[in-house]
Design a binder for these strands. Structure first.
Length: 108
DNA sequence: CATGTGACACTAA
DNA sequence: TTTAGTGCCACAT
């Protein structure tokens, strides 16, 4: 089991309509310091279709410009397509769409 | 083996 | 609040 494999595994567990931060994915993959590795993992994705890479955003909900294609953010389009809303700052509304691995139904 | 780079995160100013 | 610096892990050279 390689680090990348764990990362892909975690990212693949992100439910539709939700997003997770690099740090969060890294922490769930095993180490909270793999944030950069997560980004690299998605950067060198062998098969973009088998992991919802677009559901992974920065801690502030911002999307890295490096993921842009011909000037437009494919992530934004995909996330919007899944029902994710964006703020005026161009960030994902983490308040509503931040993935919470904990299934505390009825808490808070 | 050492150095540089990178879809990040945290801390200090 | 924004910018700059540092740490971290994996990969390329």
């Amino acid at each position: 089991m390689t680090t990348f494999q764990k990362i892909y595994e975690v990212v693949g567990q992100i439910p539709e309509g939700f997003v997770a931060t690099y740090g969060q994915v890294a922490a769930m993959a095993g180490n909270p310091r793999w944030a950069r590795v997560v980004g690299y993992a998605l950067h060198v994705l062998p098969d973009p279709a088998f992991v919802p890479w677009h559901r992974v955003v920065a801690k502030d909900g911002r999307i890295s410009t490096a993921s842009d294609i011909n000037g437009e953010s494919l992530q934004e389009a995909l996330l919007r397509s899944e029902g994710v809303t964006f703020t005026l700052d161009g960030r994902v509304d983490l308040q509503k769409h931040l993935w919470k691995p904990v299934d505390r139904t009825g808490f808070v």
